[in-house]
Design a protein around this nucleic acid. Sequence first.
DNA 1: GTGCGCCAACTTGCATGCAAGATGGCATCA
DNA 2: TGATGCCATCTTGCATGCAAGTTGGCGCAC
Lengths: 238, 238
Amino acid sequence: MVRTRSAAERAAEQDVERRPSLVDDAYAKMKEEILESRFPPGFQASEQEIALRLGMSRTPVHEAAIRLQEDGLIRVLSRRGILILALAPEDMREIYDVIIAIEGRAAELLASLPDVEREAVAAELAGHTAAMADAKQIGDLPGWARADEAFHRTLVERARNERMVRIIQTINDQSHRARMLTLRLRRELGASVAEHQQIIDAIRFGDPAKALDRAHHHRLRARDELLPLLESFGLKHL
Amino acid sequence: MVRTRSAAERAAEQDVERRPSLVDDAYAKMKEEILESRFPPGFQASEQEIALRLGMSRTPVHEAAIRLQEDGLIRVLSRRGILILALAPEDMREIYDVIIAIEGRAAELLASLPDVEREAVAAELAGHTAAMADAKQIGDLPGWARADEAFHRTLVERARNERMVRIIQTINDQSHRARMLTLRLRRELGASVAEHQQIIDAIRFGDPAKALDRAHHHRLRARDELLPLLESFGLKHL
DNA sequence: GTGCGCCAACTTGCATGCAAGATGGCATCA
DNA sequence: TGATGCCATCTTGCATGCAAGTTGGCGCAC
């Protein structure tokens, strides 16, 4: 029966957290296997077999597969199982453009905040950037990557836009394997610190146009360094 | 069995279009009912009942519901059916910021294309804008809305980024009801034509920075007109 | 009259059955 | 020997059964 619901009912439902379901479990585990390349791109597996491995029936695996397909990580082939998608350099170009768009707007929004909040965000971002500089100093590549990721995550999360956060999360999942792969290829850890600093300054001084421009510039520079690298390695899919 | 697959196999699979499934059918029909407010926001329905109405079992309805939940149109409540989500003015703010980010970058990309392509895109955009002016002249509000939508769709689609297209599609679905509702509230059809023209000019002359700026400005102006309107009408959810 | 608790009805989560599509290999024929 | 077509096998799409969680209402106690 379709029926209207009171505001009270709706408010109550906001609180209700879904209890852990097998579908959530399957989703999390399959995603992890894909991101860690234990299900490498281009491989195919039957839902049956995954179900067996995860100790559940086909149903929750199938439903998790639908979500992963929406995330752009796999394709569910009719009667032929699940295909783990690979990323081409072309996909990385698309992904960078989405990041440029979203992070640029986020930086612009952060630079438009009231003084106190701006300063708080700037301080937080500066902390992550300092951690990057430290990690670089002692040659701690994973540490550098973590701090860099924290900087960019903060940039978007502090802009108070759940949809932007979600978009970035999806895009990050898609490009996770590529990031892991290229981390040790990159030689330009220094430039990032300086560019982050410029973004932070623009936010701190409340200059939205400059924050947007510097955020764009940072990601464009990173992309222009990464893409040729990928292609020179002949990485047609990753 | 998990196994590697040749490039030929993979290429072949690209062609394989999924044949129409009941899940696709359920997804399309449910989405239409939601967008047309025949399933109004805040209402709740059981999967059982929807299945009955669509003449299928619960399974495809449930799987379609998962996809609609990923799209942000509904929430699947454990053992309590499907809840049609409403949009608050706050959501519209988020949505506009995503549009501003994506369309801004798209305009920037279009203005960076080679001469010939830039001109082709500019001409196409100019066509839609002319249609808007005509529709406004004769008071054809739905015609104006269609041409406006075509302009913005073209802006993103011509930027050759499938992910951006997908993001905009999702966002448009989410805000469809709000757009329909506010179409007749708006008084400012004229401003749009002039602003579109500025975006077109920037693309035609190959000025990416200006194209970005004008695209931002256009959507910001539209948002700043719309949001107070929504709030003055006390539209807490729509 | 008011509040509490129990219960019947309903709803989905998940497992499984069945049918039909897809595939690979083998046998057969030229 | 090479090509073709058939068939056994595998895999999913969808329906349905069952169990467990959720809800609303009725009756009972005070």
